[in-house]
């Protein structure tokens, strides 16, 4: 942690300075909220999760050692929360549907396909907002490990270096997952592109 202003902020946070917490939320809320929303795809759920992310940040601030930047560390907490919440939501959906929780993989794929089938036909598409919705749904339908890389890189514009640290995977893995995510998204969108 070389950034002196970050060092000062961390010290204030560790001293439970409420003003520093407000400042931290102010700085990161938009990025983290958009990350969560693109991962989860539901506003209400995203807003709740956003609060939980910052609560975890504050609860764990004493364990922040400065091995990465504070922002990267917050992203890490946020992605973990997203993945856990998605698992929880899928599980809850499964229990509601049937008692076989070990069908997750197959059912996940089915629900993903269903989601794409629910999209309007290309000739029914209106310009503008529909495209936004379409891309959002297409992103949501990707598998988590591909989706997260795509969101971090192409929606949030983070560097490969930052993504490696956040996901704790080597650069080659980040690149190959990103490529697969982009190609998959392209396949889903081809009928709608002109």
């Amino acid at each position: 942690m070389n950034d002196p202003s970050q060092h000062k902020l961390v010290k204030q946070l560790q001293a439970r300075d409420a003003h520093a917490f407000e400042q931290l939320i102010e700085t990161h809320q938009t990025r983290i909220y958009n990350l969560i929303y693109r991962m989860i795809g539901n506003r209400e759920e995203s807003e709740d999760l956003l609060q939980e992310v910052f609560i975890t940040v504050f609860k764990k601030i004493d364990s922040f050692r400065g091995d990465s930047s504070l922002t990267t560390w917050i992203y890490k907490i946020a992605t973990n929360h997203c993945i856990n919440r998605k698992k929880y939501l899928t599980r809850r959906k499964h229990y509601a549907k049937s008692s076989y929780s070990d069908l997750s993989e197959k059912e996940q794929a089915e629900s993903r396909n269903a989601m794409m089938e629910n999209l309007p036909r290309p000739d029914e598409m209106a310009e503008g907002k529909q495209m936004e919705l379409l891309i959002q749904k297409a992103i949501i339908s990707l598998e988590d490990e591909y989706k997260i890389v795509l969101i971090l890189r192409d929606v949030q514009n983070l560097s490969y270096d930052e993504i490696e640290q956040i996901l704790n995977v080597p650069a080659g893995t980040v690149k190959s997952r990103l490529h697969r995510a982009r190609m998959a998204l392209k396949e889903k969108l081809i009928p709608y592109l002109r």
Partner: peptide
């Protein structure tokens, strides 16, 4: 596709 992704909204928190 890349162009569409980069044009996605950033929602206000």
């Amino acid at each position: 596709t890349m162009n569409e992704i980069s044009g996605l909204y950033h929602f206000a928190p």
